[in-house]
Amino acid sequence: MKTIAIIPARGGSKRFSGKNVKLLGELPLLSHSILYAQANNVIIDDIYVSTDNEEIKKIAIHYGAKVIDRPNSISGDFEPTVSALKHVLQFVEPDVENVVLLQATNPLRPQHLLKEAFEIYQKENYESLFTVSRNHQKLGKIANDKFIPFNYSIGQRSQDLEPLFFENGLLYITKSSLILNDIIISENAFPFEVNHIFAQVDIDTPDDLDYASYLYQKK
């Protein structure tokens, strides 16, 4: 049974037009996830890019990925990611057991992240796994011009906060059977903790890309 990587990469982005082909270092943003998957070829058997854009398609092929043309019907701004993953599975060989989702907008990942996560995923026989990071901020909401603390009391030390975590988008591993039922993160999904500076990178604006470029050059 195979494990494949799928990288969804639409051409349209209202907040940051053409972000998936912007350069991070000397390489297009998309290529970083393709190269990461290739570096983990002990785990990943095939790499697929799902796109509706010709320029992205050319980049994907140039860097050695296979391309699945995504129809307009599942390429809109509000279409969930699982639609693209499910569409890819409908076009590949039926012996795919696991899908590794790599988001092009999370181009920087710790070198051994996939190896460590996949070992746990297999050993414990999880049906899905996703990466999370701890949030150390004092969070609250504003209502009627007043700040209402959410995860702390006014005056509480930050080191005494109850641990809260956020989905960082670095990596998802899921059984293909779940995706065919429109699920990426199951109720029993394992939250794999990653406390690394790369978990702070999620490119949605030009400023995000500038920050990623700084880390890329530094690391």
Rank of each mutant, 00 (worst) to 15 (best):
I4D: 01
A5Q: 01
A5G: 05
A5C: 12
I6T: 02
I7E: 02
I7K: 03
I7F: 00
P8G: 02
P8H: 06
P8W: 04
P8Q: 06
A9S: 09
A9M: 03
R10T: 08
R10G: 04
G11M: 08
G11E: 04
G11L: 06
G11A: 07
S13D: 15
R15D: 13
R15G: 00
F16D: 09
S17C: 05
G18M: 11
G18V: 09
G18I: 07
G18D: 09
K19F: 11
N20V: 10
V21Y: 12
V21G: 05
K22P: 06
L23Q: 09
L24P: 06
L24W: 07
L24R: 06
G25N: 02
E26K: 13
P28E: 05
P28F: 06
L29H: 05
L29Y: 04
L30M: 11
L30C: 08
L30K: 06
S31I: 03
S31D: 05
H32L: 02
H32P: 00
S33K: 01
S33C: 10
I34H: 04
L35H: 06
Y36W: 06
Y36A: 07
A37Q: 07
A37H: 03
A39D: 13
N40C: 07
N41L: 13
V42Q: 15
V42Y: 13
V42M: 11
I43C: 12
I43W: 11
I44N: 04
I44T: 05
D45I: 09
D45R: 12
D45Y: 11
D45T: 02
D45H: 14
D46S: 15
I47F: 07
I47R: 07
I47T: 04
I47S: 04
V49L: 01
T51W: 08
D52R: 07
N53D: 15
N53W: 12
N53H: 13
N53V: 10
E54S: 15
E54Y: 13
E54T: 15
K57Y: 14
K57P: 00
K58R: 15
K58A: 15
I59S: 03
A60M: 10
A60F: 09
A60G: 03
I61M: 13
H62K: 15
H62Y: 12
Y63A: 04
Y63W: 14
G64T: 04
G64F: 11
G64W: 11
A65M: 09
A65H: 06
A65W: 02
A65P: 04
K66T: 10
K66G: 03
V67M: 12
I68K: 06
I68S: 08
R70K: 10
R70T: 15
R70H: 00
R70W: 00
I74W: 04
I74F: 05
G76A: 00
D77N: 11
F78G: 08
F78M: 10
